[in-house]
Structure formats: C-alpha cells, structure tokens
C-alpha cells in the first residue's frame, strides 16, 4: 500500500513536471502578456525609450529574459520553495491574493457539493428502482437538461427572474452597497445572500451528472445475482434496495465523490465570473485575460495538482472501500 502510494506520488510528480512545462512554454510564447502591454504603454509616453528597450528592461526585472527551459526550471524551483512571486495584475504577492480568494471558492464548492449529494443521489436511486417509469424518464431528462444547460444562459435567466423582476438579489458582486455599515452578523448574512444565486446555478448544473452516475451504478447493482437472492429470500423491497443494493452502489459513489474533493478548491471559473464573486476562479480569470503570468502559472499549477490529487484519492478510496480491489 505504502509502496503504491509512493509510486503514484512520484508518477504524479513527473506528470506535473510535463504539464507545467507545456503550460509555461505556452504562456511565454504568447506575445500578449502584461509585460508587453505595460511596455507598449510606457513606450508611447512622450520622449520614452522604444518598445523593445522597455520590454527588455521589464523582462530582466521580472526574470523573464532567460530561455524557456532555464526559466521553467527556475519557476519550478521557486514554486516548490514557496516563492511564488508577485502578481503583475493585482500587484500583490500571488500567495496573498490566493489566500484572499480561495476560501470563498471552497465554501461555495462545499455547499454545492452537499446540496448535490442531497438532491442527486436519492433521485438517482428512485430513477433506477423504477426503471422506464415516468419518474425515470423525468429524472433522466431533467438530469440531461442540467448537463446541457449553458451556465451563462441559466445564470442570466436567474438574474432576470430573481434580480430584475423580483428584486430579491443583486445582479453582481459578493457584498451589497451598505456592507461597511453592517454588523459582523449582518455582513455574514449579506455575503450569504449574495451567494444564493451562484450556488443555485452550480447545484442545478452539477446534479445531472451525479444523478445519472448514481442511476447507472444502481441499475448495474440491481441486476446482480445477490439482489435476486435477497428478493428470493423474501426480503421486503425497502431492505433490498437500501440495505443490499444501495450499499454496493456506494462503492463507485464514494470513489467519485472522494476524487472530487480537491476540486472544491479550484473554484467555478465561469459562474464566479458571471456573478462577479471574487473567488479564485474570478480572480484567475482576470489574471489570465490580463496576461498575468505569475498568477496564471500558480493557478494552473494549483489546478493541475488538484486534478492529480483527485485521481490519487479516487484510486486509493476505491481500494479502501471495495475489499475486492487489491492495489499493486
């Protein structure tokens, strides 16, 4: 087991190295980073140096004048020694901006995950136990509609109904106009109030896949021999479904949910941007569009690590939950 984990970790490290190499070269190749923009602005000032001179100076200043490979190795060294540099776009240390924003995304992600589990799994089970019934069709269509719904369209609809027509929520932002005047409890409520629509959006869009996953796995289990045995024993349907079938369905469910835990930190890039919620996704979006290489590199590395970690956790959980699986 330990050997397996160490092997997987080392393997993940190698993948991380290459993933970030590709991303680093890509970012460096693009002629549109923040430095170029700044250099262009500076060079247009009256009596200024030329664009090339400014660019050279800025690149030297930010350590971007080395070759791709050397630059990458240095970035890698800095990344692992915790020296993440300063964000060009936000003009604060990358790690500071990261700390300011990631927890909001995490809280949002956690709430969404809880709702997702509460809603999707029971519906998936119901759909599977009544296969081809009206309920099953409804659940299937609703789940697929949730998957097919464009985030921005759904968010706009919610905004139209709840912000414009009913006036219950603000269109954008995390805090209201009078946030500063509120008490601590009031500030908390204000933030919670502003998070309602983003969370609803994320929940509706994400329950579909979990619902279908639950249904598929439940169906598979329901066809198994031991379910027939349980029924043949004369157990009542409730016991068959919730004691025998559901517990076996839990194996893939726990695996996939465990694997998605690191993803809670990654933030919802599109949704946060749509609602202007200053989580890690929104922050990263603006950094990336603004050509902020240090922040983008950090964010992308962070996401890559979360993905690798998620895969690892899923595999380990699979072995932990299902005694039939042996890790080699």
């Amino acid at each position: 087991m330990h050997k397996y984990i160490i092997k997987r970790l080392l393997y993940s490290l190698i993948i991380f190295f290459f993933v970030m190499l590709i991303i680093y070269v890509l970012l460096r190749c693009l002629p549109t980073s923040y430095l170029e923009t700044v250099a262009r602005q500076m060079s247009q000032r009256p009596g200024s140096k030329t664009y090339q001179e400014w660019l050279a100076q800025l690149e030297a200043q930010y350590g971007m004048d080395k070759g791709y490979l050397l630059g990458y190795l240095e970035w890698l060294k800095n990344f692992f020694t915790g020296n993440h540099g300063d964000s060009w776009f936000y003009t604060v240390p990358v790690i500071e901006k990261f700390h300011d924003t990631v927890w909001l995304s995490f809280v949002m992600g956690l709430i969404v995950l809880i709702f997702e589990i509460i809603i999707a799994i029971p519906l998936g089970i119901v759909a599977a136990t009544k296969q081809y019934s009206f309920t099953d069709y409804t659940v299937t269509v609703v789940a697929l509609a949730g998957i097919s719904l464009p985030t921005f369209f759904f968010a706009s609809l919610l905004k139209l109904v709840f912000s414009v027509k009913l006036g219950w929520f603000d269109l954008f932002g995390l805090v209201g106009r009078n946030y500063e005047q509120l008490s601590a409890w009031g500030q908390f409520l204000d933030k919670a109030h502003h998070l309602v629509l983003p969370i609803v959006t994320l929940v509706v869009l994400s329950i579909g896949s979990l619902m279908r996953y639950t249904r598929t796995n439940m169906l598979e289990v329901m066809n198994a021999d031991y379910i027939r045995t349980a029924r043949a024993k004369g157990l009542d349907e409730h016991t068959v479904i919730y004691k025998h079938a559901f517990r076996n369905t839990l194996i893939p469910l726990v695996t996939i949910l465990g694997g998605s835990l690191p993803g809670l930190f990654s933030g919802a890039l599109i949704t946060e941007t749509l609602y202007a919620i200053p989580g890690i996704g929104y922050t990263a979006y603006h950094a990336m569009v603004g050509g902020d290489i240090p922040f983008s590199m950090f964010y992308l590395a962070f996401i890559a690590i979360l993905t690798l970690l998620g895969n690892l956790i899923a595999d380990l959980l699979y072995a932990a939950v299902d005694p039939r699986v042996r890790l080699a």
């Binding site: 590709i22 991303i23 002629p31 990336m288 603004g290």
Partner: peptide, 26 residues
C-alpha cells in the same frame, strides 16, 4: 498513455481562455 495522462491533467478551460485572450490582443 503517459501523453494522455499529461493532456488529461492540463486544465483545458483556463488554457482556452488564455489563448482566446491572446488572440484578442493579437
């Protein structure tokens, strides 16, 4: 399969956004 693993791990949405923004600027 290792190449596939690497590509799997590349965060595609951010990369597309970065490339899109770059094409905008160019």
């Amino acid at each position: 399969m290792r190449i596939v693993d690497i590509f799997y791990c590349i965060p595609s949405t951010p990369i597309i956004i970065i490339l899109g923004a770059a094409m905008d600027a160019m």
